[in-house]
Design a binder for these strands. Sequence first.
DNA 1: GATTAGCACTCGCAAGGTGTGAGTGCTAAT
DNA 2: ATTAGCACTCACACCTTGCGAGTGCTAATC
Lengths: 342, 342
Amino acid sequence: MELSERKKQILSTIVRTYVQTGEPVGSKALCDSLGGISSATIRNEMSFLAENGYLTQPHTSAGRIPTNRAYRLYIDDLMPRRAPSEALMAQIRRLMPDTSADSQRALLSAVGALSKATGCAALITSQVSSGTLIHKIELIPMGFNRALLVLVTSSGAVTSRMYSFSVTLTGELIGRFLSLAEEHLIGKELNSIQPATLQTIVASAGGFALELTEPVFALGEIIEELGKSTLTLVGETRLLSHPGITLSKAHEMFELFSGGDEILAMLDAWGKESGVILGGDTSYTALDRSSLVLSKYSVGNATTGYIGIIGPTRMDYDSILPGIEYFAHLLSADTQQKKGLI
Amino acid sequence: MELSERKKQILSTIVRTYVQTGEPVGSKALCDSLGGISSATIRNEMSFLAENGYLTQPHTSAGRIPTNRAYRLYIDDLMPRRAPSEALMAQIRRLMPDTSADSQRALLSAVGALSKATGCAALITSQVSSGTLIHKIELIPMGFNRALLVLVTSSGAVTSRMYSFSVTLTGELIGRFLSLAEEHLIGKELNSIQPATLQTIVASAGGFALELTEPVFALGEIIEELGKSTLTLVGETRLLSHPGITLSKAHEMFELFSGGDEILAMLDAWGKESGVILGGDTSYTALDRSSLVLSKYSVGNATTGYIGIIGPTRMDYDSILPGIEYFAHLLSADTQQKKGLI
DNA sequence: GATTAGCACTCGCAAGGTGTGAGTGCTAAT
DNA sequence: ATTAGCACTCACACCTTGCGAGTGCTAATC
């Protein structure tokens, strides 16, 4: 059922006013800011909106507060979807990190800037996309049966881990390992490596199969980990300064974030290009009063993910959403252009 | 001026009771738990202790609360410095990470366990000690004038960073770079590398000096960073569940921690083998109600630092301090024994 | 001289009462 | 359909009051 134009206007004004003040919005205040309609009329409209689940009252004699449904409608339909102002764009461009050589660091500093600029916690997820290749593999013996396994991807991400194996790695073993890696893995897509691939490699090691099982599967472990999506959160601290937050809510939220996987799964299930996830619409009570504003980004053809912020549901979506979108756009364009691919 | 035995006993009981209950301790309650002396006498003693700065009253008709001075005395002199109980030691041993090959990861999981066990935030600092050598240096070209610089230390720590240089790195350049590194850096103590050393290297590059300045100084950057102390904090979230914490205090604390350097400098200035830093004795108001319990540890002869926790000043030092000490001891012994050095 | 019982006093805190004001719903008039 | 008017509701801030825990002081006691 479609709301009348006037109802929409009233709802829209309520949302904006509430976002600004944080106080329940009364009919009289609305009357002033709308003009032309009396408070009594507005009261009628408001009670209609309340009946239909767009508004609630904290108590009988208080003004109205927008519900999740109201926010949803506001964000999807009512909100002015104008491009970010020139001033905002300039400000964002100033914030963009000096995209030096290292894209991971650049992304990190980008979210840092985002968090600072919005005063919210900022997040970035990253997922290795199908274009990412295995660029280099190293196995560096470190004594006492230990060795450092290093894997570099075409996007320049480096992962290294120390392992200790049950056999001593002779120069011959290492050479064999590296040539096997060269043959089966280097230049291959990271995502294409399956457990079966590793089995094949071990099998083709001939007489060295026994000794090389451990290193190969260690490599598999790293490859698998690299393939996983990651979530990075920055500036969680800022959540503490938001109005209306309580200690216990903050605690719940931090608890949820420290899991990480849940947020990742949520974003995955969401899947949109950009927009807002209202915390109240999720199954996490920790997010009751918070929301996520997100936009997809991609760096070269190596990494994709979401970048965005977590802030109070009562936030100024009008400027934040376009801001984030522009930010993600800039990030993608920038890195793509300057860095190219290998 | 030395306190009488009885004053010490009273003070000690006040500290213990207050730590347990969190309520100001009155003369009557003390009378019950001490026995043998009347509440009036205790009141006299208490007012003496109050005059000498060991106790305060939140208000006239409330019990007494220990001051920092009282905690200090309690921890240094009054507290029973018994070895941790067998049960506690067993519990700690259970918590110790499976010290696999990778000491950095092991340490991280150790602090994680510590945080969980104590319900406090846990911290670990690490500093490269003089025994650490440069074990391997790699320069891997990644296209578009970019290259990945990798440095491995004898303790197995790997640092890698992508750089983009103003010249294209030919195979010849890289070879030259690596042989220079081999000659001047590999096997050297990490801490011994000075800016002057880098100058020398560049100078000895002969015709390649111009092209190799950038990579060499990039290497210098990494070496310098590796030499810096680091601070890792885990489980800050748990601070939020401590009784008596406020949102603004938590915010202040997180703010302080995110700086990192200040805490490091503080520990550095402190310098003891193990013990307690009372937040109230520091210059940080963020810490007025919190304290740090710390103990030095060392891994092989490569890394040293402090491991410990941050919790409310009103905490049970009796068992936590010996616990941390035993933890650090175990950590050092364990890693030293199992890992040896390269 | 140290210790103790007794007592008056202080003060935070929770409970209960009250007034105020913002905001509503309803009704009758326009 | 809109509006003015009015009675009603309810959170909140404010004040008062009583209670109880705990103190400091004094005079008696060991």
